[in-house]
Computed example of a mutant assay.
Amino acid sequence: MAAYTPRMHQATIKRATARDAAALTGLVRESGAYRGPYSSIISGYRVTADYIARHRVFTAVDATDRLLGFYALVLDPPELDLAFVSDDAQGAGVGRLLIGHMLAQAAEAGLSTVRVVSHPPAEAFYRRLGARRTGTVPPRPPQVTWARPELHFAVG
């Protein structure tokens, strides 16, 4: 697959629907960031239509409606539960666009902070966007065998 090169302003954010569940699941399972030692956390993982209906799930798509990434914001308790950008769209500003949108959704919902339990390699990305590290979440074997950084975004 060719690398995604258009600038981020060419991506559009849309509310996910039940019809997006399979594509979102595919994006999670194909993520290069979760190969090797991190693969256990997404093994068998599914984004379901029910999950999409219960949470604020938004996608980033290009002009041809190709999925570039998505996030899921859980309101209670406030947490960025999922955030994925397709491997070929990374570095094009899609993740920054999604996080900015997520923070706007959090503000609209009246939240003051949003927790992120980060994939360890993604911590620097979240910190560049303003998240503050607040702790470490211990491993939860058998699926998660490593500690994960806990961060918080201030909203507003």
Rank of each mutant, 00 (worst) to 15 (best):
A3M: 15
T5V: 11
A11Y: 04
K14E: 13
R15M: 10
R15A: 12
A16S: 14
A18C: 07
A21F: 03
A22T: 05
A23P: 03
G26V: 03
G26D: 09
S31F: 04
R35C: 15
R35H: 10
P37T: 12
Y38W: 10
S39Y: 09
S40W: 05
I41V: 09
S43D: 15
S43V: 06
S43M: 14
G44L: 09
G44S: 09
T48Y: 07
T48L: 09
T48F: 07
I52W: 02
R56N: 10
R56P: 03
T59L: 09
R66C: 15
A72G: 05
L73A: 06
V74I: 13
V74N: 13
V74T: 15
P77R: 13
P78M: 07
P78Y: 04
L80V: 02
D81K: 11
D81Q: 13
S86K: 01
S86M: 03
D88H: 10
G93H: 04
V94N: 01
G95Q: 00
R96T: 00
R96E: 01
R96I: 00
I99M: 01
G100I: 00
H101E: 07
L103R: 05
L103C: 10
A106Q: 07
A109E: 12
L111P: 02
S112H: 15
T113Q: 15
T113I: 13
R115M: 11
V117K: 06
V117M: 11
H119G: 06
P121G: 06
Y126S: 00
R127I: 03
R127H: 06
R128S: 05
R128K: 12
L129N: 03
G130L: 08
R132V: 07
R133H: 12
T136G: 10
P138H: 07
P142H: 15
R148H: 03
E150F: 02
H152V: 12
H152A: 14
V155Q: 10
